[in-house]
Amino acid sequence: MSELTLTVMRLGFLAVLWLFVIVAVQVIRSDLFGTRVTQRGSRRGADARPQQPRQNAAPPQQRQQAGGRQRRGAPTKLVVSEGTLTGTTVALQGQTITLGRAHDSTIVLDDDYASSRHARIYPDRDGQWIVEDLGSTNGTYLDRTRLTTPTPIPLGAPIRIGKTVIELRK
């Protein structure tokens, strides 16, 4: 085998190996998945939907498809305002949200006072969001009252589960 061929192959191999690495990194770049972190330093309310990243384009469309029954003024997200998960939000897209320490809950509470299946939040047929206590040990509180029946959630009312407080926001 001639020296030239071998040199070309040697450099060619390194080039191909690095090409693989670069392609793999490109795949990672186009594969931002899992959680979306949005920093909000702007005034809320005045500007309900600040500039959103590119990946954000899909969810609102879906929301319209899924519901069509969402009324104006209906809450669009659930926010954890106290407890270890403070700052976590979950978009409300017509699905049932389960809360508890069980690992298959939508929001897994890391809270000693919560039961494994503590409560659920779901929309009724009119799109009104309802919170229901699932027979928890320490109870679920809406404002100051302990829940005994499924109860509609007013916008911004604190729902207290153990040390965690969540509320629905627009």
Binding site: T35, R36, T38, R44, N56, A58, T88
Partner: peptide
Amino acid sequence: VVTNTTTIGAI
């Protein structure tokens, strides 16, 4: 209110 919270949502 000016807040500076971090939102985590699913893509």
